[in-house]
Deep mutational scan, measured.
Amino acid sequence: EKIKSDFFELLSNHHLDSQSRWSKVKDKVESDPRYKAVDSSSMREDLFKQYIEKIAKNLDSE
């Protein structure tokens, strides 16, 4: 859970929106230790998708 929250924090530093693509974001964040803390690339992508869904819901509710 800490790894997930750290990863979300990392993503939040990059001002993403619901149109952001993992392939582009990954290049910007892959040197960060919070990125490396997530064991697998599929898990990183899953967390990215969860984060994008979360910010999309937040935008819808505003």
Rank of each mutant, 00 (worst) to 15 (best):
residue 51 Y to L: 01
residue 49 K to I: 06
residue 61 S to N: 07
residue 42 S to P: 10
residue 27 D to R: 11
residue 14 H to F: 14
residue 20 S to T: 06
residue 23 S to T: 10
residue 26 K to S: 06
residue 60 D to A: 08
residue 50 Q to K: 09
residue 13 N to R: 07
residue 10 L to I: 03
residue 11 L to P: 00
residue 2 K to L: 04
residue 1 E to M: 04
residue 27 D to K: 15
residue 56 A to T: 14
residue 35 Y to H: 03
residue 17 D to K: 03
residue 25 V to C: 05
residue 56 A to M: 08
residue 36 K to S: 07
residue 31 S to C: 13
residue 15 H to Y: 10
residue 28 K to R: 09
residue 48 F to R: 03
residue 52 I to H: 05
residue 45 E to I: 06
residue 6 D to Q: 06
residue 17 D to G: 06
residue 34 R to N: 02
residue 4 K to P: 02
residue 41 S to T: 12
residue 7 F to Q: 02
residue 39 D to A: 12
residue 58 N to T: 14
residue 27 D to C: 13
residue 9 E to P: 00
residue 30 E to W: 08
residue 11 L to F: 01
residue 19 Q to W: 08
residue 6 D to T: 02
residue 16 L to A: 05
residue 44 R to C: 13
residue 12 S to G: 11
residue 51 Y to V: 00
residue 25 V to Y: 06
residue 6 D to C: 02
residue 17 D to S: 08
residue 57 K to T: 12
residue 32 D to L: 00
residue 37 A to N: 06
residue 42 S to E: 14
residue 8 F to D: 02
residue 43 M to E: 11
residue 22 W to Y: 04
residue 31 S to E: 10
residue 11 L to K: 00
residue 35 Y to N: 02
residue 31 S to P: 06
residue 17 D to Q: 02
residue 23 S to Y: 05
residue 55 I to T: 10
residue 49 K to F: 05
residue 4 K to V: 06
residue 51 Y to P: 03
residue 46 D to E: 13
residue 39 D to M: 10
residue 57 K to I: 12
residue 50 Q to R: 07
residue 19 Q to P: 04
residue 50 Q to S: 10
residue 42 S to L: 11
residue 54 K to D: 05
residue 57 K to G: 11
residue 35 Y to P: 01
residue 8 F to H: 05
residue 1 E to F: 10
residue 57 K to A: 11
residue 2 K to E: 10
residue 44 R to V: 04
residue 60 D to G: 13
residue 60 D to T: 08
residue 62 E to F: 09
residue 43 M to P: 02
residue 52 I to A: 05
residue 5 S to Y: 09
residue 11 L to V: 01
residue 33 P to G: 05
residue 14 H to G: 03
residue 49 K to C: 09
residue 5 S to L: 13
residue 53 E to N: 10
residue 11 L to Q: 00
residue 28 K to F: 09
residue 29 V to E: 02
residue 27 D to I: 15
residue 20 S to V: 05
residue 12 S to N: 15
residue 1 E to K: 15
residue 49 K to Q: 14
residue 11 L to E: 01
residue 54 K to W: 06
residue 7 F to M: 01
residue 5 S to R: 12
residue 57 K to H: 07
residue 55 I to N: 12
residue 19 Q to L: 08
residue 18 S to Y: 11
residue 49 K to T: 10
residue 54 K to F: 10
residue 2 K to M: 04
residue 47 L to D: 02
residue 59 L to M: 13
residue 26 K to H: 05
